[in-house]
Design a protein around this nucleic acid. Structure first.
Lengths: 141, 141
DNA sequence: CTTATTGCAAACCATTTGCATCCGG
DNA sequence: CCGGATGCAAATGGTTTGCAATAAG
């Protein structure tokens, strides 16, 4: 289902601003972007796009399940198009590069939680930090 | 080693403000606190403590390895005294309660990363979200 | 005495909100 | 046309910074 139908099916309007923001997310699948970055890129598609609208669109897409918030070390938020594929991220502490990590041991961990307490786990977030291949080699260089 | 010696050994001064802030962290071992919360509690020990000083003390303690930043879903930072015991947190989405989770599968995950890419993992953060035993039972009624 | 530390006020910066205008349906 | 959506400007809230006064060693 495309963006227009998704929006209409939930009673929202299909606007060029939303199209621009969503287009940027899709084009950067797997690369978490800050609202600022999204705005800058989306302005190339719809030049008069306001930053406020960018924020509001990103939140809306999260509500609709079209995008997800990514929680990294930093303070600002990041957003990614929701592909349905569960994954985490590895962030390079040197250059800031972000790699996708498909491995996730949450199911095993949930088992342990279930055994150890009555807490019901419904969500989780995890990020790994370290050094990417590029920074490792140039450092040794 | 106590706080006074730790500070002096690194050339910092031992002040009642720092003592108050550190005391609050120690007293709340295992319970991540926001700077605001730390400030409020520390004021009971040193009433004229400024919020700015609280922020600066918390950062200093992290640098000295006496405290650690905790990364939860929310936007504000949390701090915890550093006990040396690695652990994560489970946050209740209903009442906000935070439970300590000692289980951690990072070593297994590092193995997988090592096999799958050249990324060198040095740090990680993880938080689980869900519902605590109390909220689960009261919800069922 | 010397200078790190403190507390205040002001600056900062990402994000949110109020509101008049605009435009999708 | 009508109400949701937009963009601007102003407000917000957590955090940081500048600076003169203070106090640790």
């Amino acid at each position: 289902m495309n963006l227009e139908k998704r929006l209409h099916s939930r009673g929202y309007r299909y606007t060029p601003q939303r199209e621009a923001v969503f287009g940027v997310l899709k084009e950067n699948e797997g690369k978490p972007l800050s609202p600022e970055e999204v705005h800058e890129l989306a302005c190339k598609r719809f030049s008069s796009l306001g930053l406020t609208t960018t924020y509001r669109s990103l939140e809306l897409f999260c509500d609709l399940g079209l995008a997800t918030r990514v929680h990294l070390h930093g303070d600002s938020h990041y957003y990614e198009v929701n592909t349905g594929k569960h994954h985490h991220h590895m962030v390079c502490l040197s250059c800031g590069a972000i790699e996708i990590l498909e491995a996730c041991l949450i199911e095993e961990l949930k088992e342990r939680v279930r055994d150890g307490s009555d807490f019901l786990v419904t969500e989780h977030c995890m990020s790994l930090f370290g050094y990417c291949p590029g920074c490792l080699t140039s450092r040794k260089g």
